[in-house]
Design a binder for these strands. Sequence first.
DNA 1: GGTATTCTTGACTAGTCAGTCAAGTTTATT
DNA 2: AATAAACTTGACTGACTAGTCAAGAATACC
Lengths: 205, 205
Amino acid sequence: MAVTKTRDRLVEIAIEMIWKNSYSSVSVDDICRSADVRKGSFYHYFKSKAELAVVAMEQHYQKAQVDFDHVFSPTNAPLERFEKYVELALNKQKQAIKNYGHVCGCPFASIGSEMASQDNLIREKADEVFRRHQRYYESTLRDMVAEGLLPEDTDIIARAGEISSYVCGQMMMARVQNSLEPLERDLKIGLFRILGIDSKHLNAS
Amino acid sequence: MAVTKTRDRLVEIAIEMIWKNSYSSVSVDDICRSADVRKGSFYHYFKSKAELAVVAMEQHYQKAQVDFDHVFSPTNAPLERFEKYVELALNKQKQAIKNYGHVCGCPFASIGSEMASQDNLIREKADEVFRRHQRYYESTLRDMVAEGLLPEDTDIIARAGEISSYVCGQMMMARVQNSLEPLERDLKIGLFRILGIDSKHLNAS
DNA sequence: GGTATTCTTGACTAGTCAGTCAAGTTTATT
DNA sequence: AATAAACTTGACTGACTAGTCAAGAATACC
């Protein structure tokens, strides 16, 4: 299936609308209306609304990876990576507020949690994205061990899972509170505490 | 409005169905059918589906508080409270699997995240429940300071928020993964790491 | 230029949605 | 026993739902 302008527009608008609201509250008609595409065309490109969601999640993460690759570049010191990652996450949330009018949290967590019991393909895609994302943490943690910032016997996988859960939890809390304050106040400090590092020793930025 | 059998049945069945699936995927008709109540009666007790959800969230948390009060009783040593809390959370999830066929996570996070942008009363109720729940953590952390397990200058509120986010994140991940394994493997260890305590020094249970 | 393929269009199902309402039944009050 | 209030019933909106389909338009291939 070739990538076309119509298809691309559907995918892009879909993830925006679903991230802002929710999977269920955004109808195929809504998406088509926003994209100025008729319904028949929608079902020419996607066999179901759920399939569009899965494609949109994949594409959204792939686009975000460009930023993640930059932030988690091995040319940055390990702690610097986490610092820049926190900044990136905060900026994304601020952008979402500007574009969509409220705190949106993590789209994969929101969609994944909402649809977990209703559509297994959506659940699996969310799960897969989290697993892929966790590899950024794992790699950085290994570099921390190499630099002596963490003990040799650190359980990398478990520690990366902790970071995942913590960050994801903060994002969800921010969405439910509809406020970025706790995120701005606590995310960096909390993340560095999980790493066992007193963030007061780091440069403010 | 008096508490009646009909109203109670609606509230109880609603939270079960919504926790298992999602707010949007459970219709008023579904709830009425399960409760063997006609729709007119539903709207005699609740002015909208959203109002039922808010009532159901409050009632669900109040029922859960009985267990929380027991677990977080000051007669338990602070670390013991957190240990028992992890056990309680795990048991609730196991029960949910048995009753509903899959991992359900935290109902307040799931409903709150799903509805955050669509219904402000539901969002606020979820937020409020999290705030109330966090007081268990705060109180326990203060007792830890008193016992010398944490430094005097510990930021209790911030630390309680970290615990909230971490636990909530783990629950959401479990729902998305539809697996209790990571929860069973990591929740206790991760929680104690946030507390700055090596959980290996504690009794297995 | 002709043909096959891809894409678009708009009308169309058939079912579901939250919520309403008037008439009826039960229960509590006096 | 009479009246009022609380509650139940079932039929009813009107809007929306995901998805279908046949016919037509645009494009690519030969």
